[in-house]
Amino acid sequence: MTPSPETSAAQSLEKDAYQAFDRGDLQEASRLFGKLVEQEPTTAHFHYMLGLSHKYQLDWQESLHHNLRSQQLDEEFDESSAWNAGIAATALGDWAEARRQWTQCGIGIPEGEGPIEGDFGLVSIRLNPWAEGETVFARRIDVVRARLLNVPLPESGHRLFDIVLHDGAKTGERRIEGGVVPVFNGLARLAPSDYRTYVAFVRCDSPADIEDLRNATLPGIGYTEDWTGSISHYCLRCSYGTPHRHDDEATESLDWESERNLGIGSQSKAAVSRLLKEWVSRGPGRHLDGIESPDHEPPKVEHGFTWWRGPDEDAADELDA
Protein backbone atom coordinates (compact mmCIF):
# COMPACT_ATOMS: atom_id res chain seq x y z
CA MET A 1 0.00 0.00 0.00
CA THR A 2 1.40 3.35 -1.07
CA PRO A 3 1.69 5.81 1.86
CA SER A 4 -0.38 8.95 1.64
CA PRO A 5 1.33 12.26 0.84
CA GLU A 6 0.79 13.31 4.45
CA THR A 7 2.49 10.16 5.76
CA SER A 8 5.40 10.55 3.35
CA ALA A 9 5.86 14.19 4.39
CA ALA A 10 5.84 13.22 8.07
CA GLN A 11 8.37 10.44 7.49
CA SER A 12 10.61 12.81 5.55
CA LEU A 13 10.39 15.43 8.30
CA GLU A 14 11.30 12.83 10.94
CA LYS A 15 14.25 11.61 8.87
CA ASP A 16 15.50 15.17 8.41
CA ALA A 17 15.19 15.86 12.15
CA TYR A 18 17.27 12.82 13.12
CA GLN A 19 19.86 13.59 10.46
CA ALA A 20 20.21 17.15 11.76
CA PHE A 21 20.74 15.84 15.28
CA ASP A 22 23.22 13.19 14.15
CA ARG A 23 25.40 15.77 12.42
CA GLY A 24 25.28 18.11 15.42
CA ASP A 25 23.03 20.80 13.94
CA LEU A 26 21.09 21.22 17.16
CA GLN A 27 19.21 24.36 16.22
CA GLU A 28 17.87 22.72 13.07
CA ALA A 29 17.09 19.53 14.98
CA SER A 30 15.14 21.54 17.57
CA ARG A 31 13.18 23.29 14.83
CA LEU A 32 12.30 20.04 13.05
CA PHE A 33 11.46 18.04 16.18
CA GLY A 34 9.39 21.05 17.26
CA LYS A 35 7.39 20.70 14.04
CA LEU A 36 6.91 17.00 14.70
CA VAL A 37 5.66 17.77 18.22
CA GLU A 38 3.16 20.24 16.77
CA GLN A 39 1.91 17.61 14.32
CA GLU A 40 1.93 14.71 16.82
CA PRO A 41 1.78 16.22 20.32
CA THR A 42 1.15 12.86 22.00
CA THR A 43 4.19 11.04 20.54
CA ALA A 44 6.58 10.57 23.46
CA HIS A 45 9.83 10.05 21.55
CA PHE A 46 9.41 13.32 19.62
CA HIS A 47 9.26 15.16 22.95
CA TYR A 48 12.28 13.16 24.14
CA MET A 49 14.36 14.12 21.10
CA LEU A 50 13.29 17.75 21.37
CA GLY A 51 14.33 17.72 25.03
CA LEU A 52 17.65 16.10 24.09
CA SER A 53 18.32 18.72 21.41
CA HIS A 54 17.68 21.50 23.93
CA LYS A 55 19.86 19.75 26.52
CA TYR A 56 22.94 19.95 24.30
CA GLN A 57 22.18 23.61 23.65
CA LEU A 58 22.16 24.03 27.45
CA ASP A 59 18.57 25.24 27.23
CA TRP A 60 17.54 23.67 30.51
CA GLN A 61 13.97 24.94 30.85
CA GLU A 62 12.90 23.58 27.46
CA SER A 63 14.83 20.36 28.01
CA LEU A 64 13.10 19.73 31.33
CA HIS A 65 9.67 20.54 29.90
CA HIS A 66 9.90 18.09 27.01
CA ASN A 67 11.50 15.31 29.02
CA LEU A 68 8.71 15.55 31.58
CA ARG A 69 6.15 15.55 28.79
CA SER A 70 7.80 12.49 27.28
CA GLN A 71 7.48 10.70 30.61
CA GLN A 72 3.81 11.62 30.88
CA LEU A 73 3.09 10.20 27.42
CA ASP A 74 5.23 7.07 27.63
CA GLU A 75 3.43 3.98 28.90
CA GLU A 76 6.69 2.53 30.29
CA PHE A 77 9.41 4.12 32.41
CA ASP A 78 12.20 5.51 30.23
CA GLU A 79 15.46 5.87 32.15
CA SER A 80 17.11 8.07 29.51
CA SER A 81 14.32 10.63 29.75
CA ALA A 82 14.53 10.54 33.56
CA TRP A 83 18.30 11.16 33.48
CA ASN A 84 17.91 14.08 31.10
CA ALA A 85 15.12 15.53 33.21
CA GLY A 86 17.29 15.11 36.32
CA ILE A 87 20.20 16.90 34.66
CA ALA A 88 17.99 19.78 33.53
CA ALA A 89 16.33 20.06 36.94
CA THR A 90 19.75 20.13 38.62
CA ALA A 91 20.92 22.89 36.26
CA LEU A 92 17.81 24.91 37.17
CA GLY A 93 18.15 24.27 40.90
CA ASP A 94 14.81 22.45 40.97
CA TRP A 95 15.92 20.06 43.68
CA ALA A 96 12.51 18.51 44.30
CA GLU A 97 12.24 17.48 40.65
CA ALA A 98 15.86 16.32 40.50
CA ARG A 99 15.36 14.16 43.59
CA ARG A 100 12.19 12.69 42.10
CA GLN A 101 13.98 11.75 38.90
CA TRP A 102 16.96 10.13 40.65
CA THR A 103 14.66 8.23 42.99
CA GLN A 104 12.67 6.71 40.15
CA CYS A 105 15.98 5.72 38.53
CA GLY A 106 16.74 3.75 41.67
CA ILE A 107 19.68 5.95 42.72
CA GLY A 108 20.18 6.25 46.45
CA ILE A 109 20.45 9.89 47.46
CA PRO A 110 20.74 11.53 50.89
CA GLU A 111 17.42 12.52 52.40
CA GLY A 112 16.42 16.17 52.36
CA GLU A 113 14.70 18.82 50.33
CA GLY A 114 17.50 21.02 48.99
CA PRO A 115 20.68 20.39 47.00
CA ILE A 116 22.05 16.86 47.14
CA GLU A 117 25.27 16.71 49.14
CA GLY A 118 27.04 13.36 49.21
CA ASP A 119 30.03 11.41 47.95
CA PHE A 120 29.36 9.72 44.64
CA GLY A 121 32.98 8.88 43.92
CA LEU A 122 35.96 10.15 41.97
CA VAL A 123 35.54 10.89 38.26
CA SER A 124 37.21 12.78 35.45
CA ILE A 125 35.42 15.75 33.88
CA ARG A 126 36.03 16.88 30.31
CA LEU A 127 35.69 20.64 30.54
CA ASN A 128 34.13 22.46 27.60
CA PRO A 129 33.86 19.30 25.46
CA TRP A 130 32.80 21.47 22.50
CA ALA A 131 36.21 23.21 22.63
CA GLU A 132 39.63 21.92 23.76
CA GLY A 133 38.18 19.33 26.12
CA GLU A 134 40.76 19.46 28.93
CA THR A 135 40.14 16.66 31.45
CA VAL A 136 40.52 17.08 35.22
CA PHE A 137 39.73 14.91 38.21
CA ALA A 138 36.73 15.75 40.35
CA ARG A 139 34.74 14.45 43.30
CA ARG A 140 31.04 13.92 42.63
CA ILE A 141 28.91 15.49 45.35
CA ASP A 142 25.68 14.73 43.52
CA VAL A 143 24.49 12.44 40.76
CA VAL A 144 25.52 15.03 38.13
CA ARG A 145 27.46 17.68 40.10
CA ALA A 146 31.17 17.47 40.86
CA ARG A 147 33.85 19.59 42.56
CA LEU A 148 37.04 20.02 40.52
CA LEU A 149 40.19 18.72 42.24
CA ASN A 150 42.80 19.78 39.64
CA VAL A 151 43.97 23.25 38.68
CA PRO A 152 42.46 23.79 35.20
CA LEU A 153 44.18 25.80 32.50
CA PRO A 154 43.09 29.47 32.65
CA GLU A 155 41.78 29.23 29.09
CA SER A 156 39.17 26.72 30.22
CA GLY A 157 37.36 29.44 32.19
CA HIS A 158 37.23 27.07 35.17
CA ARG A 159 38.95 27.08 38.54
CA LEU A 160 40.08 24.69 41.23
CA PHE A 161 37.08 23.65 43.41
CA ASP A 162 34.44 24.86 40.91
CA ILE A 163 31.15 22.97 41.12
CA VAL A 164 30.25 21.79 37.63
CA LEU A 165 27.28 20.07 36.07
CA HIS A 166 28.19 16.98 34.06
CA ASP A 167 26.40 14.65 31.69
CA GLY A 168 25.19 11.21 32.74
CA ALA A 169 26.80 9.18 29.92
CA LYS A 170 30.39 8.01 30.30
CA THR A 171 32.56 9.10 27.35
CA GLY A 172 35.75 7.25 28.27
CA GLU A 173 38.03 6.30 31.13
CA ARG A 174 41.09 7.86 32.70
CA ARG A 175 43.78 6.07 34.68
CA ILE A 176 44.52 7.05 38.22
CA GLU A 177 46.68 5.40 40.82
CA GLY A 178 44.97 2.18 41.78
CA GLY A 179 42.63 1.91 38.82
CA VAL A 180 40.52 3.90 36.36
CA VAL A 181 37.67 6.38 36.68
CA PRO A 182 34.93 7.28 34.19
CA VAL A 183 35.11 10.44 32.11
CA PHE A 184 31.99 12.61 31.86
CA ASN A 185 31.40 15.67 29.72
CA GLY A 186 31.13 18.89 31.71
CA LEU A 187 28.01 20.87 30.75
CA ALA A 188 28.10 24.04 32.85
CA ARG A 189 29.86 25.73 35.74
CA LEU A 190 27.22 26.00 38.46
CA ALA A 191 29.25 27.54 41.29
CA PRO A 192 32.57 29.29 40.56
CA SER A 193 35.14 28.95 43.32
CA ASP A 194 37.25 31.81 44.67
CA TYR A 195 40.51 30.00 43.82
CA ARG A 196 41.84 31.65 40.68
CA THR A 197 44.43 29.94 38.50
CA TYR A 198 47.92 31.43 38.65
CA VAL A 199 50.56 30.30 36.18
CA ALA A 200 54.06 30.38 37.64
CA PHE A 201 57.34 29.85 35.82
CA VAL A 202 60.26 28.66 37.92
CA ARG A 203 63.67 27.04 37.53
CA CYS A 204 65.16 24.43 39.83
CA ASP A 205 67.72 21.62 39.80
CA SER A 206 65.80 18.49 40.74
CA PRO A 207 62.41 16.83 41.24
CA ALA A 208 62.96 17.19 44.99
CA ASP A 209 62.73 20.98 44.57
CA ILE A 210 59.30 20.68 42.92
CA GLU A 211 58.14 18.15 45.48
CA ASP A 212 59.06 20.61 48.22
CA LEU A 213 56.94 23.26 46.50
CA ARG A 214 53.98 20.93 45.91
CA ASN A 215 53.96 20.00 49.59
CA ALA A 216 54.20 23.60 50.81
CA THR A 217 51.03 25.10 52.25
CA LEU A 218 49.95 28.62 53.09
CA PRO A 219 46.59 30.26 53.84
CA GLY A 220 44.85 30.97 50.53
CA ILE A 221 46.76 28.30 48.58
CA GLY A 222 44.59 25.45 47.36
CA TYR A 223 46.85 23.26 45.25
CA THR A 224 50.05 23.44 43.19
CA GLU A 225 50.54 21.35 40.05
CA ASP A 226 53.60 20.86 37.85
CA TRP A 227 52.28 21.25 34.32
CA THR A 228 55.66 20.87 32.61
CA GLY A 229 55.14 17.33 31.37
CA SER A 230 51.34 17.18 31.23
CA ILE A 231 50.75 20.41 29.27
CA SER A 232 52.80 19.68 26.19
CA HIS A 233 50.73 20.76 23.20
CA TYR A 234 52.35 24.19 23.08
CA CYS A 235 55.09 26.15 24.82
CA LEU A 236 53.38 27.64 27.85
CA ARG A 237 56.22 30.08 28.50
CA CYS A 238 56.09 31.44 24.96
CA SER A 239 52.32 31.88 25.20
CA TYR A 240 52.75 34.18 28.23
CA GLY A 241 55.85 35.94 26.95
CA THR A 242 58.14 34.69 29.71
CA PRO A 243 61.82 35.06 28.65
CA HIS A 244 63.63 31.75 28.10
CA ARG A 245 65.48 29.87 25.39
CA HIS A 246 64.59 26.75 23.43
CA ASP A 247 67.28 24.09 23.41
CA ASP A 248 65.72 20.95 21.95
CA GLU A 249 68.95 19.02 21.81
CA ALA A 250 69.76 19.72 25.44
CA THR A 251 66.21 18.83 26.48
CA GLU A 252 66.39 15.50 24.70
CA SER A 253 69.66 14.57 26.40
CA LEU A 254 68.62 15.41 29.94
CA ASP A 255 66.28 13.54 32.26
CA TRP A 256 65.30 16.70 34.10
CA GLU A 257 64.07 19.99 32.66
CA SER A 258 65.05 22.83 34.94
CA GLU A 259 62.38 25.18 33.55
CA ARG A 260 59.07 24.25 35.20
CA ASN A 261 55.57 25.51 34.42
CA LEU A 262 53.23 25.46 37.39
CA GLY A 263 49.50 25.85 37.87
CA ILE A 264 48.52 27.15 41.29
CA GLY A 265 44.98 27.45 42.58
CA SER A 266 44.97 30.36 45.02
CA GLN A 267 42.66 32.95 46.50
CA SER A 268 45.16 35.76 45.87
CA LYS A 269 48.33 36.62 44.00
CA ALA A 270 49.87 37.76 47.28
CA ALA A 271 49.61 34.21 48.61
CA VAL A 272 51.25 32.82 45.45
CA SER A 273 54.08 35.37 45.65
CA ARG A 274 54.73 34.53 49.28
CA LEU A 275 54.64 30.77 48.60
CA LEU A 276 57.20 31.05 45.81
CA LYS A 277 59.42 33.55 47.63
CA GLU A 278 59.66 31.24 50.63
CA TRP A 279 60.33 28.26 48.35
CA VAL A 280 63.18 30.07 46.57
CA SER A 281 64.74 30.98 49.91
CA ARG A 282 64.78 27.37 51.11
CA GLY A 283 67.16 25.94 48.51
CA PRO A 284 70.00 26.82 46.12
CA GLY A 285 69.39 26.92 42.39
CA ARG A 286 65.76 27.93 42.72
CA HIS A 287 64.53 30.88 40.65
CA LEU A 288 61.17 32.52 39.98
CA ASP A 289 60.78 33.81 36.41
CA GLY A 290 57.22 35.10 36.54
CA ILE A 291 53.64 34.82 37.74
CA GLU A 292 50.65 35.30 35.46
CA SER A 293 46.96 35.37 36.37
CA PRO A 294 44.96 35.42 33.14
CA ASP A 295 41.19 35.26 33.52
CA HIS A 296 38.90 33.75 30.90
CA GLU A 297 35.23 32.94 30.53
CA PRO A 298 34.34 29.37 29.52
CA PRO A 299 34.13 29.14 25.71
CA LYS A 300 30.62 29.22 24.29
CA VAL A 301 29.02 26.06 23.02
CA GLU A 302 29.84 25.40 19.38
CA HIS A 303 27.37 23.67 17.08
CA GLY A 304 27.87 21.62 13.95
CA PHE A 305 29.51 18.52 15.39
CA THR A 306 28.52 15.84 17.91
CA TRP A 307 30.79 16.83 20.81
CA TRP A 308 28.66 14.84 23.27
CA ARG A 309 29.59 11.48 21.73
CA GLY A 310 32.30 9.33 23.25
CA PRO A 311 35.07 7.64 21.24
CA ASP A 312 33.43 4.22 21.75
CA GLU A 313 30.26 5.46 20.04
CA ASP A 314 32.24 6.81 17.09
CA ALA A 315 34.16 3.54 16.75
CA ALA A 316 30.92 1.54 16.81
CA ASP A 317 29.47 3.73 14.05
CA GLU A 318 32.56 3.15 11.90
CA LEU A 319 32.20 -0.63 12.33
CA ASP A 320 28.51 -0.46 11.40
CA ALA A 321 29.17 1.69 8.32
Rank of each mutant, 00 (worst) to 15 (best):
N215H: 14
G241T: 09
D209C: 03
A216S: 14
I210T: 09
T217R: 15
L236R: 00
Y223D: 13
H246G: 05
P243Y: 04
L236W: 04
R245I: 15
S230H: 13
G241D: 05
D212M: 02
T228L: 08
T242Q: 12
H233A: 09
T242N: 11
Y223F: 14
I221P: 03
I210V: 14
T228M: 09
P207K: 08
C238K: 04
I231Y: 15
R203K: 10
E225D: 15
S230E: 12
Y240F: 11
T242H: 02
I231R: 14
C235M: 02
Y234T: 08
G222F: 03
T224S: 10
C238Y: 01
R203F: 00
E225C: 09
W227F: 09
C204K: 01
E225W: 12
Y240G: 05
D226G: 10
Y240N: 08
I221Y: 08
G241Q: 03
H233E: 15
D212S: 14
H246Y: 08
L218S: 04
L236D: 02
P219V: 04
Y223H: 09
D209F: 03
S232G: 13
R237L: 07
T228V: 03
G222P: 00
R245N: 15
C204L: 03
R214A: 13
T217S: 07
D212T: 12
Y223K: 08
H233V: 15
C204Y: 00
D205Q: 10
S239A: 11
I231T: 13
G241H: 02
R214I: 04
P207T: 02
T224R: 02
S206Y: 10
S239C: 01
I210Q: 05
T228P: 03
R214L: 13
R203H: 00
D205S: 12
Y234C: 12
A216W: 02
P243G: 10
D205I: 05
Y234Q: 03
H246C: 13
Y223G: 01
C238D: 06
N215V: 08
P243L: 01
D212V: 00
L236Y: 01
T224N: 09
C204Q: 07
P219H: 04
L218I: 04
G220K: 11
N215Q: 12
L236K: 07
H233M: 09
R214N: 08
I231G: 01
